[in-house]
Simulated scan of single mutants.
Amino acid sequence: MRGFLDYLGIALADPDDVARPGNDAGVRIVTTAQHANINGTVHGGLIATLVDSVMGQAVRSGLEEGERSATVSMTVTYLAPAEVGQELCASAEVRRRGQSLVMAEADVMAGETAVAHAVATFSVTSAD
């Protein structure tokens, strides 16, 4: 069960669909009117959710059994507005992993247009 992601309509992308080679994770969504902001473009909160989700997925792909992760900090740079009705694809990769912190980066694309870039730090702890 993915809860919030299912509610928003965010799906895991096939590994072959991830935009850049070497990425660890990908998600996608076809935006609808329910994802719009007051200006009629896609709400920045949805884009932030995309990058947080895809970076979290990339981080989780490298966890050992019994570990879990949580977002500690995240910076999203919005590069272009996304239009309602567009498919947005987000890809991420882990840049560095230490003992208790992991840094990841993500990009959101609408076709050939870069919509956002994000960096985040995740904590890794024991699930015990």
Rank of each mutant, 00 (worst) to 15 (best):
R95T: 15
A114C: 06
D107S: 06
A80H: 09
V115K: 03
A120N: 09
G98Q: 12
A120V: 04
S91W: 06
H117E: 05
S91C: 09
A80N: 11
H117W: 11
V115P: 01
A80L: 07
H117Q: 08
Q86T: 05
L79S: 11
L88S: 04
A116Q: 07
G98A: 11
Q86A: 14
V115S: 05
A90T: 14
S91F: 03
G111E: 11
S100I: 05
S100H: 13
G98N: 13
G85S: 06
D107M: 00
G111N: 11
A118G: 05
S91H: 13
A92V: 15
A82M: 01
A110I: 00
L79K: 12
R96F: 05
A104K: 11
E93Q: 09
D107P: 00
V102Y: 07
A92S: 14
R95K: 14
L88V: 02
A90Y: 12
S100K: 12
E83Q: 04
M109V: 04
A106F: 04
G98M: 07
V102K: 10
A120Q: 09
L88H: 05
V102D: 14
T121A: 09
G111S: 10
L88I: 03
R96Q: 14
R97H: 10
A114Y: 01
E87A: 15
A90P: 04
Y78Q: 05
